[in-house]
Amino acid sequence: MKTNLLKYSVSAAALLIIGSNAMAATPTAAPKTYPAGEVGKMVKLGEDILMHTNTHPLTKDMVGDKLQCISCHIRGSDGKPGTAPGIATFIGTATAFPAYSKREKSVQTLQDRINNCFMRSMNGKRPIVDTKASVAMAAYVTWLSEGMPMKMNAKMPCSPLNSERWMHGAKHFAKIQKRATHANYVNGKKLYEAKCAMCHGADGAGMGTFPPLWGQKNGKWLAYNTGAGMSKLNKGAAWVQSNMPLGQGKTLKDQEAADIMLYVNAQPHADFDLRKALYPASKMGHYNSKVLHEKHSVRSNFKQFGLNVDKIRGDHKIK
């Protein structure tokens, strides 16, 4: 009996030490110093691109809206892109790759993951793997994971700090959104006007440095298209509840977050067509995906949850 208790005590103590070390190994900000030499220069370049994606010389021609990577991967208290603690932090992301992607039905590299975001959230063209911009962005994201243990993700291509939050949030909000009605849309509009419009504009076009959420200006789409994660009623709600209002993440109730994104994603967004977002094979080289045809629209995104966007909005303004 004493022997068993001793074994249990030693095991418990070991678990506490392991848990303590794991917690200590999880950074909450970017490393204090950049790597030396050319690697450090590449990390700094990647950071600059993530901050100014739609205007940076290396990426502006691949962006089809007014967003930057920091629009979703918010700056933390250290001012660095992707270090805010909510869903979509970059911290730990590099430790998960190579990782399986259900969307692409293939094992993805970190460059794949970043570049694919250009087609969706940036409503643009997919950068070519191993080009300077692609390597630089991956170098910066990798730098944010220094000191963390590697654990390749066999289920989804994202940071271990996000995977459970994404999976739980997506399932949880899917159940809520499937019950959505016009009343939820009306409530989402009221909540948006009270909690969001002061930063993102009543018309969703953005205000100052705060990003746009929908619509067009001079014939150019302002925000993410219907292939982006934010365009999905469940994932968008999970992200909003985790991060918004800015600096007040986790203050929105479940139904509030769901209704806000029901309203936002029922507004005009560009259709997504995978084939149009890829460069010709002669220029792009290998596209690491088994899914070569994919299309989405505002209407199809609502249909995914058994919803008719016309009934939700109470009009017929969405094509």
Score class of each variant (00 low, 15 high):
5 L>C: 05
5 L>N: 12
12 A>V: 13
19 G>M: 08
22 A>V: 12
25 A>M: 14
26 T>L: 11
34 Y>A: 12
35 P>A: 08
40 G>A: 04
42 M>R: 09
42 M>C: 10
42 M>A: 09
44 K>Q: 15
46 G>A: 10
53 T>R: 00
56 H>Y: 07
56 H>S: 09
56 H>D: 06
58 L>W: 00
62 M>I: 09
68 Q>V: 07
80 K>L: 03
84 A>Q: 11
85 P>W: 00
86 G>Y: 07
90 F>P: 01
92 G>H: 03
93 T>S: 08
100 Y>P: 02
100 Y>E: 03
105 K>L: 15
108 Q>I: 12
110 L>G: 01
113 R>K: 13
116 N>P: 02
125 K>N: 00
131 T>Q: 06
132 K>L: 15
141 V>H: 02
143 W>N: 07
144 L>E: 09
150 M>K: 13
153 N>G: 05
156 M>K: 12
157 P>T: 03
161 L>S: 01
169 G>F: 01
175 K>E: 15
176 I>D: 04
179 R>M: 14
182 H>P: 01
182 H>E: 00
183 A>P: 03
184 N>T: 06
185 Y>N: 03
192 Y>N: 08
192 Y>I: 04
192 Y>M: 08
193 E>Y: 12
199 C>V: 10
200 H>W: 11
211 P>L: 07
214 W>G: 00
215 G>S: 06
217 K>H: 04
219 G>Y: 05
220 K>D: 05
225 N>A: 12
229 G>Y: 09
235 K>H: 11
239 W>M: 13
246 L>I: 13
254 D>C: 06
255 Q>F: 10
261 M>K: 04
263 Y>C: 07
266 A>T: 02
272 F>T: 02
274 L>V: 07
275 R>D: 11
275 R>I: 14
282 S>H: 05
288 N>H: 10
288 N>D: 11
290 K>A: 14
291 V>Y: 01
293 H>M: 14
297 S>Q: 05
299 R>Y: 11
305 F>W: 10
311 K>A: 15
312 I>W: 04
313 R>G: 03
313 R>F: 03
314 G>E: 02
319 K>Q: 14
